[in-house]
Design a protein around this nucleic acid. Structure first.
Lengths: 254, 254
DNA sequence: GATTGACCTTGACGTTGCGTAAAGGTGTAT
DNA sequence: ATACACCTTTACGCAACGTCAAGGTCAATC
């Protein structure tokens, strides 16, 4: 059975433009071109197209599909697993979006203009989103989904003053830590003050505080280069110093 | 406080390109342009930008945002509610996708490469899913859950040849029906052939065939606009014509 | 006063997966 | 012969910017 472009398009329920595009990007070439330049497709192409459409429906990008259909030994299962991860992330994002929108609707309902408070809500949301984007996956792995969501919820419930307080705390940690770092002693008074401030800061995000979790987080500051980069921005070694201070503070190290 | 483009970009955590783009599309114009042509932003612009980013983070498109930030009396709540609906739909879509990918992964797991058979399994699944998506609810109401599931199970048990046969049959129905339609006579030979092909086609999906059920399905082709659209795609009136042919074929009409 | 380097400008192409003309050749039924 | 459906390539448009490129401006340093 041979098909002209439109026959195949109808068969597959797609447009002729799509088939030409697939030809153009090389994921589905016609079996042959007839004397008038028409694209002629055969059974093999029908099969390939089925595959393409199948993966497309799973939301896989055309360039990945290209790998799958052109490389005969390609590990489709692995590609799918990776793709699955992306989908899960997308869904999480979406869930958050929906929750945010719900909240915003609730907030604006009955009001005519947007108050400053609402603008501020937006910023908190943004803060969460950014944290998610940067560290979400690892933190989730380490602490579990529920904890992360509880933390986010806690942030969303902060009042404006609390928000300002936590921002101020972060500043204090920063400066205290910089001072302490100069002393070089993670067991010293300043370093321990920094560790204590850090604990206070944490209680704004965590439902319950534990020394173990605190120490674990401190270790992550060293293990994860993105955290390290954040703390070491002005003084390399600061992340490690903070970890040591916290380990001492939490009694994990003398 | 006045901001150059980069200052504002840093403050907001976005790129300067984005700010220029927002200027270009008119959703955020600088307060003024200085003598060197630099964009200078003021507090009012900071506030507007906060709003823009807020809505952007909710996934609202920039053109909608434009309405929101430029029209002071704009009903932001309504826009958000509509947007919410879209998000919910997206999530449903995504959930189905993930379920599909999961199934496909489960199928391929434990094997090294994807065999043809497996690819084919996936496609059959897709076929069922599509039918479910399009007609599932109505068909289930009409024929009952068990019948639908029996039908799906039958499809899943098809061999590849059977699948090809049923696909070929669909093609034949299509062309025969088109021919028959031209005669205008649903009792004519061609139309009756189409009805007979349609019966054969049905037996691939139904556990048992009955004239009544066949006639009922034919009626649905006319009653349900999605079926009608499918059959009428090339020739309006085809669905009705097919129904008449089947009613005659099954003896419900002379 | 000249150079450096950070910052600013506009312009324009690239991204994804096609939709949608436009301009022109081909096939076939009447 | 003519109509009409079908085919071809070329190319712009879409969202929201990223990313050069080419060139002007500003503040600090030599």
């Amino acid at each position: 059975m041979e098909y002209t472009i439109q026959k195949l398009a109808n068969l597959a329920g797609i447009s002729t433009r799509t088939l030409r595009y697939y030809d153009e990007i090389g994921i589905l070439k016609p079996a042959r071109i007839n004397s008038s330049g028409y694209r002629i497709y055969g059974q093999a192409e029908v099969n390939t197209l089925q595959q393409i459409l199948f993966y497309r429906e799973l939301g896989v990008g055309l360039d990945s599909i290209k790998d799958i259909v052109t490389a005969p030994t390609f590990d489709g299962a692995r590609a799918l697993r990776e793709h699955r991860e992306k989908l899960l992330e997308k869904r999480e994002q979406l869930d958050k979006l929906i929750a945010n929108v719900d909240k915003t609707i609730a907030l604006t309902e009955g009001r005519i203009t947007m108050s400053n408070k609402e603008k501020f809500e937006g910023f908190k949301k943004k803060m969460i989103e950014e944290n998610e984007k940067k560290y979400g996956k690892e933190v989730r792995e380490k602490y579990g989904k529920d904890k992360v969501e509880a933390s986010n919820a806690k942030v969303m419930n902060m009042t404006e003053e609390q928000y300002e307080e936590v921002t101020a705390l972060a500043e204090q940690i920063h400066s205290t830590l910089a001072e302490a770092f100069k002393t070089g002693d993670p067991a010293g008074e300043l370093a321990q003050k920094a560790a204590d401030l850090h604990k206070q800061w944490l209680t704004f995000y965590w439902k319950e505080y534990s020394k173990e979790a605190h120490a674990g987080l401190a270790q992550m500051y060293v293990d994860d280069e993105r955290f390290t980069a954040y703390y070491d921005k002005e003084q390399p070694g600061t992340a490690e110093f903070l970890r040591d201070a916290i380990l001492i503070y939490t009694g994990q190290k003398k």
